[in-house]
Write a protein that binds this DNA or RNA. Structure first.
Length: 550
RNA sequence: GGCCCCUUGGUCAAGAGGUUAAGACAUCGCCCUUUCACGGCGGUAACGUGGGUUCAAUUCCCGCAGGGGUCACCA
């Protein structure tokens, strides 16, 4: 068989050589130990937590080592293309502060190792495929879909391994005549790699996350070039990561099963293998069983979900980091204000088993992250969220920014900051009573053991004497003085010991005021609330409430 | 079914051949407290199973089971 002749017949338009290609993509000039990583999503328009999870690893690995983190678009499957898919990818990663040093951007390629979109790299792949064919290491296969299906069924019936190998590799050793006959007919074909592997052979491999493992060699003649002239993932991965000089390939563990194919290709082409880090899948508990997060069933998988529900980006990052490296939590406690970029991330610390996505834990992380922010940041983030998902609230918030920030500043800072909310979507409910537009009092929250008449009297009286005090202590002292008038006591211990002796405690007294002013029983420090609302608004609300108890 | 990965409390997990088997979330109780949100203290709760190696195994080895993944001209 004249392989060179076949290669020329198959790829007449390809005149370049692998050597020329190598020269076009020279070794990167980076400091010792610098890692080159990438994320290579498919532009299906759907970005999920798993993408982000892996991307965090790539980003940290690269930027912790003064390396390069780049974006490559894997769009070789034309059926799955979605309009604006690339745009979605780029925007999402930007939102999560994942900055690419190189690769595809909305304005075109950035970097010297492009094109960074696989559909634009056809001739590059074909150059290598032609080379393989010319060496007899790859060959055209004219099998139709039906024929392949038939093979599969036969294997199923015989309880044999599935796939294109051994006697089922029916075009592997066809005669020159048969091949040219098909070509002359213009029959569509794919190019398959001629595997020299055997399932009798095991190979040792060391993964950056899973450690040492033993895997079976690949004996399948896999498709490397599809009939449309574009490569399959397997081939594109090998060529691209070689030419772009990726040092560390981070991907989901679903790729572990095809790893032998990739290693085989790297070796056959004489390429240096990159290091691999196969990340465990994010799981979810469903009906008592662990399962992979699914696009259809689990809204929390889609990154849009986080934006919509107002979960702080910083919290998602923080939570992912905890899943990635459990010692991150410990580090965070020691360095509450440090940037997560200062944390020494390591793939060695990553767990080999799939983590269950835990919304409770995420909620806790959210509250902690938000509690560490200053009022200014909380205001801005809430506003940004509201502008997209609750415009009415956004305009209310931004009507008087200073007022809004003051509200958000209550109980913030210090050793024990308030942790009232963890999501931007919760802010509205938390501070609604500060705005007349949202104020909707529920007087049923008044202390149940006080009778209506007494509540009404307290409110009327207080409306008569209220004036904004200088300090919280002064104000509260004034409240205590009022107690005897209603047969209440400011002595909480005495009250607890013998509640029957009093109409109520100072706690009840302030609760009456709280419900009148805030419209509910749960609110931050009442003094601060009243100071912010201002004397006239407080009086107005006291009087309004008093009327309800006439 | 073949191949591969995984297996410490409800969840995330630390851990070493000999430990009272960390910590966090959740949960429960107590305390603090004018409500709530915090905060403090404490409780319940774990090494899948059977062999082996060893004075000693949850830790090392083998088998099994369970869970997950994968077997496309999809990535």
């Amino acid at each position: 068989m004249d392989f060179q002749k076949l290669a020329d017949r198959l790829f007449p338009q390809i005149t370049g050589t692998p050597e020329e290609m190598e020269a076009r993509y020279p070794e990167r000039n980076l400091p010792e130990g610098a890692k080159v990583t990438r994320i290579a999503p498919s532009p299906t328009g759907f970005m999920h937590l798993g993408n982000l999870y892996g991307a965090m690893v790539d980003e940290r690995l690269a930027h912790q080592s003064q390396g390069i983190f780049y974006l490559r678009i894997e769009d070789t499957d034309r059926k799955r293309l979605v309009e604006n898919g690339v745009e979605t990818i780029i925007k999402v990663f930007k939102k999560f502060n994942l900055n690419f040093d190189e690769g595809a951007t909305l304005e075109g390629d950035n970097g010297n190792y492009g094109p960074y979109t696989q559909s634009e790299r056809g001739p590059i792949y074909q150059t290598y495929v032609k080379y393989l064919v010319s060496r007899g290491m790859a060959y055209p296969c004219f099998c139709t879909e039906d024929e392949l299906k038939e093979i599969h069924e036969t294997q199923e019936a015989n309880k044999e391994n599935f796939g294109y190998y051994g006697k089922y590799a029916i075009w592997r050793d066809r005669s020159e005549e048969e091949i040219y006959e098909k070509l002359d007919q213009g029959a569509p074909y794919v190019i398959r790699f001629r595997s020299e592997g055997s399932i009798e052979h095991k190979l040792r491999f060391e993964d950056q996350i899973k450690g040492k493992m033993e895997i079976t060699e690949n004996d399948q003649d896999v498709v490397i070039l599809k009939s449309d002239g574009l490569p399959t993932y397997h081939f594109a991965h090998v060529i691209d990561d070689h030419l772009m000089h990726t040092t560390h390939v981070v991907r989901g563990e679903e790729w572990l099963s095809t790893l032998p194919i990739h290693l085989q290709l790297f070796d056959a082409l004489g390429f240096k293998r990159p290091k691999y880090a196969h990340t465990a899948q994010l799981m979810k508990l469903d009906d008592g069983k662990k399962r992979k997060l699914s696009k259809r069933k689990d809204p929390e998988l889609a990154l849009d979900y986080y934006f919509e529900s107002g979960i702080p980006v910083a919290a998602v990052i923080e939570y992912l980091l905890i899943l990635l490296n459990s010692n991150f939590e410990e580090w965070r406690r020691a360095n509450p204000d440090a940037s997560y970029n200062d944390f020494a991330f390591s793939t060695k610390k990553m767990s080999g088993s799939g983590a269950l996505f835990d919304i409770d834990k995420l909620n806790d992380v959210c509250k902690n992250v938000v509690s560490r922010m200053d009022a200014e940041t909380v205001y801005e983030e809430t506003l940004r969220w509201a502008q997209e998902y609750d415009p009415d609230f956004a305009s209310l918030l931004s009507k008087d920014p200073a007022y809004s920030k003051a509200i958000l500043g209550i109980g913030r800072g210090g050793k024990k900051p308030r942790k009232d909310f963890g999501r931007w979507s919760e802010v509205k409910g938390y501070l609604s009573f500060f705005f007349d537009e949202l104020f909707n009092p529920d007087f049923s929250e008044m202390p149940a053991h006080l009778d209506k008449e007494l509540i009404g009297r307290i409110l009327r009286d207080y409306a008569g004497v209220y004036h904004s005090a200088a300090t919280s202590d002064e104000w509260f002292a004034g409240l205590k003085e009022l107690c005897p008038k209603y047969n209440m006591t400011a002595d909480m211990k005495a009250y607890r010991q013998n509640p029957e002796a009093f109409a109520g405690s100072v706690g009840d007294l302030s609760m009456v005021l709280r419900v009148a002013v805030c419209g509910r029983s749960q609110a931050p420090d009442l003094y601060s609330v009243m100071q912010l609302l201002g004397e006239s608004k407080v009086l107005e609300r006291l009087e309004k409430a008093a009327k309800a108890f006439d």
